[in-house]
Design a protein around this nucleic acid. Structure first.
Length: 272
DNA sequence: AGTATAACCTGTCTGC
DNA sequence: TGCAGACAGGTTATAC
C-alpha cells in the first residue's frame, strides 16, 4: 500500500508544484462514487473547478490543498492513496490539465477523502478546522508543544492525535520518540523539560530528513513520477522488531498501543 | 469525557 | 499450491 504521513504528502506537494501548478484544469473525471467525495457530488466538483487555473498546492498536516483561485480542493490520501502523473491500477479520479498533463489519484483501499471548499471558508472546513500544531511553522514552539501534549495519555498516542499535532503518523511518531530517547508508553505529562526539549527537536528533525529522502516507501508509496522514497532505509526502529539497535545493540521491540504497532529500543528508550 | 473496538476496503505476507 | 489469518503508512463511528 501507499500511505502518506507528513513527509510523503510534502514530497508529493513539491513534485506536483513543479508539474501542474499554473495549468488550467480542463476536466475532472471521478471513477469512484461511494467514498471519495465527502461534501460534494462529481458534477459539482467538475462544474466548480473546470476552466480554472491551479494557482497553488498547499499542505496542512496530511491534507493537500489544491488552490484554484476562489475554490480549493482538499485531498487526504489516507492509507493507500497516491497522486501520479501516469495512470495506475486503481485510479479513482483524474484531473485533466492543459498541455495533456493529467493527474491520477490512485487508491486501492478507497479510504481517500476529498472535500471542496470556497477558499475564503477553507479554514472552517471541518477536517482542517480541528487540526493541531503544525511542525515547522512559527506556532511550533517548545511551549506550544508542551501545552498540546499536557495530558496523562501515553505520549505515542498523543503524537498520533491530529487534533494535537498535525502530520505525524505511525512511522514518524516511532522514529521521533526513538531520537528523543522516550519510551512510547511514557505518560505525556511526565516528561521533564529536558525530555520535552529533546522531543521538540526530534520531531522536525526526523520530518526534515524524511522529506530530504523523498519520504518512506514500505510497500507502494511512490512519488508522483513513480520514484520510490528512500527514508525506509534509515528507519531506526519502525518495522525493525527483532533487529539490533544501531546505537546500543539492544533488540528492537514491538508493542501495541491503541491498536497500532509501536517500535522502540528498550535500551535507548527506557520506561522508568 | 475518555478509551477500546470495529469499521471502512484491498493487498500482501506468513505460517500451517 | 492453497488457504486462513495477521497486518498495513489513517481516520471515524459506535460501544462501553
Amino acid at each position: 500500500m501507499a500511505m502518506p504521513e507528513l513527509p510523503e504528502v510534502e514530497t508529493i506537494r513539491r513534485a506536483l508544484a513543479r508539474e501542474v501548478v499554473g495549468l488550467e484544469l480542463l476536466r475532472v473525471m471521478v471513477q469512484e462514487r461511494v467514498h471519495l467525495l465527502r461534501n460534494c457530488r462529481a458534477r459539482e466538483l467538475h462544474d466548480r473547478l473546470t476552466g480554472r487555473r491551479l494557482e497553488t498546492i498547499g499542505r496542512r498536516g496530511k491534507y493537500l490543498l489544491f488552490g484554484f483561485g476562489t475554490e480549493t480542493m482538499v485531498l487526504h490520501l489516507r492509507m493507500s492513496g497516491r497522486l501520479l502523473l501516469a495512470p495506475a491500477e486503481h485510479t479513482r479520479l483524474i484531473l485533466e490539465f492543459t498541455g495533456r498533463k493529467n493527474l491520477y489519484f490512485d487508491d486501492a483501499r478507497r479510504f481517500g477523502a476529498l472535500y471542496l471548499a470556497s477558499t475564503d471558508k477553507l479554514a472552517r472546513l471541518e477536517p482542517l478546522a480541528e487540526l493541531g500544531l503544525e511542525p515547522g511553522t512559527p506556532d511550533y514552539t517548545l511551549k506550544q508543544l508542551r501545552r498540546v501534549l499536557a495530558g496523562p495519555q501515553e505520549i505515542k498516542r498523543l503524537l498520533l492525535d491530529q487534533r494535537k499535532l498535525a502530520g505525524l503518523g505511525n512511522i514518524y511518531a516511532c522514529e521521533a520518540l526513538y531520537r528523543a530517547r522516550l519510551h512510547p508508553q511514557r505518560r505525556a505529562n511526565s516528561l521533564s523539560q529536558r525530555e520535552a526539549q529533546r522531543l521538540y527537536q526530534a520531531i522536525p528533525q526526523v520530518l526534515a530528513r524524511a522529506i530530504a529522502s523523498g519520504g518512506s516507501s514500505i510497500a507502494s508509496y511512490r512519488q508522483p513520477d513513480g520514484a520510490l522514497g528512500q527514508f525506509q532505509n534509515e528507519f531506526a526502529v519502525y518495522g525493525q522488531a527483532g533487529e539490533l539497535c544501531a546505537a546500543c545493540g539492544s533488540c528492537i521491540e514491538r508493542i501495541v498501543q491503541g491498536g497500532r504497532s509501536s517500535f522502540f529500543c528498550p535500551g535507548c528508550q527506557p520506561l522508568r
